[in-house]
């Protein structure tokens, strides 16, 4: 299992890249409601970027479970291959 804090740091960089905001901060409870730019298209961008960064291929159930940052971090802590 990967280190959760390290996963969180890398996930922050993914978010900043996808949303093109170098000052963006994320937190476990953060959802699309907390970020205006987090719409359905950017969610797909996020999924693709997460798959690239962490070397994972997510299934539909996992994608559906990516409702908040904490869930993403937990999932990636289990699944990340790099």
């Amino acid at each position: 299992m990967a280190d959760r804090a390290e996963i969180g740091k890398r996930l922050l960089l993914v978010f900043r890249d996808v949303f093109d905001d170098d000052s963006l901060e994320i937190f476990d409870a953060m959802t699309a409601e907390d970020l205006d730019e987090w719409d359905s298209v950017s969610h797909i961008s996020l999924v693709l970027a997460v798959e690239r960064e962490f070397g994972v291929s997510l299934n539909a159930t996992e994608i559906g479970a990516l409702a908040n940052v904490g869930a993403m971090t937990d999932l990636l802590s289990d699944r990340a291959t790099r």
């Binding site: 797909i44 999924v47 693709l48 798959e51 690239r52 291929s57 997510l58 299934n59 994608i63």
Partner: peptide, 11 residues
């Protein structure tokens, strides 16, 4: 460079 069947998206 990337294809996700589940997300129905490609790069």
């Amino acid at each position: 460079t990337q294809i996700s069947v589940e997300a129905a998206a490609m790069a």
